Amino acid sequence: MENIIVACPHCKSLNKLPKKNEYKKAVCGVCKGNLLDNKPIKIDNEAEFNKIISNVNIPVIIDFWAVWCGPCQMFAPTFESIAKNYPLKANFLKVNTEEIPQVAAKFGIRSIPTIVAVKDGVEIDRVMGALPEMQFAMWVDKIINS
């Protein structure tokens, strides 16, 4: 049986689960948090970012943002709302470009917000700007179904 590897939205630990179309229950092996309670994961350092990006085998949607950025603040609730719709289908990460500039530089981030989709450690798409919720949901659907 094929497995998926996901990062826990509560403790950031990696979890291996059997791949299914639908899950009734999924619990983190470390913190016992509900893996179906999908929410953006705040990344605190480059090592944490690299651990998730290199090991997770579902799409990872990354929001590159900064505290001082008005459009970033406007987009944050949309990012959080859409993340809830994709438990165990995608991990959603928040990377503050002021706190972890080396990660932003690695992805060539020139303006924020920039949303990058990564699969198996490789960038597969990106969009720039604070997208409306419907447009962002359509983009995430495209990433997950590709």
Results as ranks from 00 to 15, higher is better:
E2A: 14
I4N: 02
I4D: 06
V6K: 09
V6T: 11
V6D: 01
V6I: 14
A7E: 02
P9E: 04
C11S: 09
K12C: 08
S13I: 05
N15E: 02
N15V: 08
K16Q: 10
P18C: 01
P18G: 03
K19S: 11
K20R: 15
N21I: 10
E22N: 13
E22K: 15
E22R: 12
A26V: 06
V27Y: 00
C28M: 14
G29V: 14
V30I: 15
V30F: 14
C31S: 09
C31F: 06
K32F: 06
K32G: 03
K32H: 12
G33L: 07
N34V: 10
N34R: 12
L35Q: 07
L36M: 04
D37C: 07
D37W: 07
N38G: 00
N38T: 08
P40T: 04
P40G: 05
P40A: 05
P40F: 04
I41R: 00
I41M: 02
K42R: 14
D44S: 15
D44E: 15
N45Y: 12
N45F: 14
N45E: 15
E46S: 10
A47K: 15
E48K: 12
E48L: 11
K51W: 06
I52N: 09
I52L: 08
I52E: 11
I53C: 09
S54G: 12
N55A: 12
V56N: 01
N57R: 11
N57H: 11
I58M: 06
V60S: 07
I61N: 03
I62P: 01
F64M: 08
W65M: 13
A66G: 10
W68K: 12
C69Q: 02
G70M: 14
P71Q: 04
C72V: 13
F75Q: 08
F75N: 06
P77K: 03
F79Y: 12
F79L: 08
E80Q: 10
S81Q: 05
A83H: 00
A83L: 01
K84M: 12
K84C: 10
L88Q: 01
L88T: 01
K89T: 08
A90N: 04
N91V: 04
F92S: 03
F92M: 04
L93P: 03
L93W: 00
K94V: 03
N96R: 09
T97C: 10
I100V: 14
I100N: 01
Q102Y: 04
Q102R: 10
V103P: 01
A105M: 10
A105Y: 05
F107W: 10
F107K: 05
G108C: 09
I109W: 05
R110G: 11
S111V: 07
I112W: 00
I112Q: 00
I112D: 00
P113I: 13
P113T: 08
I115M: 13
V118F: 03
K119P: 00
G121S: 13
G121A: 10
V122W: 01
V122I: 15
E123F: 01
D125F: 03
D125R: 04
D125C: 04
V127E: 06
V127F: 09
M128Y: 05
G129T: 06
G129D: 07
A130E: 08
L131D: 00
E133Q: 14
Q135H: 13
Q135N: 13
F136G: 08
F136M: 07
A137I: 03
W139D: 01
V140E: 06
D141H: 07
D141F: 03
D141G: 02
K142M: 14
I144P: 00
I144W: 03
N145T: 11
S146E: 06
S146Y: 09
